[in-house]
Design a protein around this nucleic acid. Structure first.
Lengths: 135, 135
DNA sequence: GTGATTGCAAATCTTTTGCACTAAA
DNA sequence: TTTAGTGCAAAAGATTTGCAATCAC
């Protein structure tokens, strides 16, 4: 099965139609694992790869991928959103200098004690951000 | 020493001039511990308290307080910034329903293992966000 | 007086939206 | 054909900024 066919299958399985623009974005995103992109970066990349699309379409599709569970939004910088192609639970490094995210491998970070949820609330998950600077 | 005099002293100690607007904001922020506010909320509160100032001044001062180490920015929602009056290292609950932050008390959450910093980088800190929903 | 601070309005930046148009099945 | 998806440009929100006026010391 070609990469393209594989990605088409993933889109269909997620209930998303296959369009030229969406397929191009999905190929850029899912060809590698563990990509962390902003809308802007992905837009520039798509244009660079010769795909003709609009920024609005990039935003629409990032949201569609998130809703479909193919992508996860990571909040770390109040001025922009990052999207992570690794949707399994894991934590991140954030390099403030370059404003770039990277994954922390499974088992490299351990939280042994979680607080009790406040009255009437339930914990839905937790994320750890480890901040980095150049040494 | 009055509350106001105490706060004036804190501003001066932080290298900030004491103006009517700045003092009013500082009093709203630092009267209680562990406040978590957005620029908008603080602006509304200041107006409600009868202080005449502009939203730009609120933003300018939130930034000034952060730079002076009196306040800490907490990133949890990509559409707005939260400011925390507790500048010591601690972690947060975030209730998605109400978009509100609260502190996790010291010792209630324990991270036992941190990953090694990537080559050439140094870890400057880490934060844990525990997400909540209504049960 | 003099430099820091403020207010205002305009600018910026990211993201969303309305709507007419296009393309996929 | 029919409906989902796209492009555009405009709108929306949050935040910043330039600059003249004002305030604290």
């Amino acid at each position: 099965m070609s990469i393209s066919a594989d990605i088409k299958a993933r889109l269909l399985a997620a209930g998303l139609g296959v369009t030229r623009q969406r397929l191009a974005l999905a190929e850029l995103l899912f060809r590698e694992h563990d990509r962390h992109v902003t809308a802007d970066q992905l837009f520039a990349e798509a244009l660079g790869a010769g795909c003709d699309l609009s920024l609005a379409t990039v935003y629409n599709n990032l949201k569609a991928f998130c809703d479909a569970g193919l992508l996860r939004e990571v909040v770390v910088d109040s001025t922009r959103s990052y999207y992570d192609t690794n949707v399994s639970r894991h934590h991140h490094f954030y390099a403030e200098d370059t404003r770039s995210l990277s994954d922390i491998a499974e088992g490299q970070l351990v939280v042994t004690k979680l607080p009790p949820a406040p009255e009437g609330m339930a914990i839905t998950g937790y994320e750890v951000m480890v901040r980095l600077t150049k040494r």
